[in-house]
Amino acid sequence: MDTPAVLAEGLRKRYGGRTRKGGAFALAGFDLAVSPGTVHGLLGPNGAGKTTAVRVLATLLKSDGGRAEVAGLDVARDPRGVRARIGLAGQYAAVDEGLTGRQNLDLFGRLFHLGARRARDRATELLDRFDLAEAADKGAGTYSGGMRRRLDLAASMILAPDVLFLDEPTTGLDPRGRGEVWDAVRTLVEGGTTVLLTTQYLDEADRLASRITVMDRGRAIADDTPDGLKNRVGGDRIEVVVTERADLAAAREIVARVGDGEPTVDAPERRLHAPVTDRVDALTEVARSLRDERIVVEDIGLRRPSLDDVFLTLTGHRTDEENR
């Protein structure tokens, strides 16, 4: 196998250093290996340690133990070398809202030591590439959330880095902004950049990443392809909620006939679900059969596995119990 573009071995980090005893480890022996030229998803609920991991790898934070390499360079021993090879787009769009989009990129280009002329040319090139040419000379403060994010991505791409860290690039965006950012990320990868992307959405990791590491309490608890992960969770499922509990048995039979496995029944909630593959066919078929048998349903639909489902399967506990 190639040398990983990003490598973490047993990374440990406790905030507050030695002074605060007994504090939980934000990273508790975190392992990661990202193949060059791929998008790797780091998936985990709030507080799992995703940002901490990214900050250690991007040389912003010193770890308390373990080892990390980025683009073949040791993060602790050669931070300057690492900084010349990475881009970072943090959890918030780090753009100056008082400046125009062009001025923002121009400034970062100069700070990357491109010199005034090349910084200006690179700004123009990136504004085109991220579809911001029209708004280039408007204040970044007037940009939509999606535009701001794209400007932030463009800024992290100034030197066409070997490795790009994106920390929750779509959190807080509406579906349209999210789609715009996804497109921008795909554009990056065509250029050969390795991307490590953190997210709380299984859906997002599924769309963008070729491999996903699931993180919980400072550790990697699974490392798999999106399909592998979804198979473990059970993939898409159909879900039916009947109005009358008496209809539950009949509904179960219908769902069992169409679905790919034994339906799971939640009697008090009058709900049942079963894994499916031909999603729309299955939905149509179940709906028709239910109507034929005059079973009144309160709700029927297809559900994709969410981060919650992944967690339930992998850890046996729900994500929202995490921070309590």
Partner: peptide, 13 residues
């Protein structure tokens, strides 16, 4: 707060 300082610190400047 906005991560501008982090971005600067992650750059080879």
């Amino acid at each position: 707060g906005k991560g501008v300082v982090d971005r600067f610190r992650s750059m080879p400047m």
